[in-house]
């Protein structure tokens, strides 16, 4: 993939698809009226988030880029699961082992490598600071 032209919505609108593979041209009132579209059709595709990460990195926002790469992995994880991971990361919610198990699960079930690494790092920090 070559260098991405920002805004994608203006330069690459025809190439972008949602997570379900819908093109932007399909995301119309007509299709909505016809009952052809659901909420999942409006979730950003992980490749689009990676493209945005690339744009951010290029423009000198490395931490934002890392965040967007973690976000890309979360696009395929259901809402309720995402909420439960957030809950587990809050102080005193789970044990060290449970947090590590959660990291393993995300990596195994959803290929969320970056998030898994991030959660493992949190687990170490929480252990050190007594946040379990």
């Amino acid at each position: 993939m070559g260098k991405r032209r920002y805004p994608l919505g203006e330069y690459e609108r025809d190439k972008i698809v949602s997570q379900t593979g819908r093109s932007l041209e399909e995301l119309t009132l007509e299709n909505l009226r016809a009952g052809k579209l659901g909420p999942e059709d409006f979730i950003i595709h992980q490749e689009t988030l990676r493209a945005q990460a690339e744009i951010a990195e290029e423009a000198g926002f490395p931490q934002l880029a890392a965040n967007l790469r973690r976000a890309a992995e979360l696009t395929v994880i259901p809402h309720e699961k995402v909420l439960s991971v957030y809950e587990a990361l809050r102080p005193y919610r789970v044990t060290y082992e449970q947090l590590l198990a959660l990291a393993d699960e995300l990596e195994r079930e959803y290929g969320a490598v970056e998030n898994a690494r991030f959660i493992r790092e949190a687990a170490e920090a929480y252990k050190e600071r007594g946040l379990f």
């Binding site: 950003i44 965040n67 995402v82 102080p91």
Partner: peptide, 26 residues
Amino acid sequence: TEGAFIDGDDTPWSKAFLASAYASRG
């Protein structure tokens, strides 16, 4: 400070995860 952060019921990691969670839904 750590004390205030924990009183706020979060950690830097939970907040960072939240940021990614929002971004994952655009």
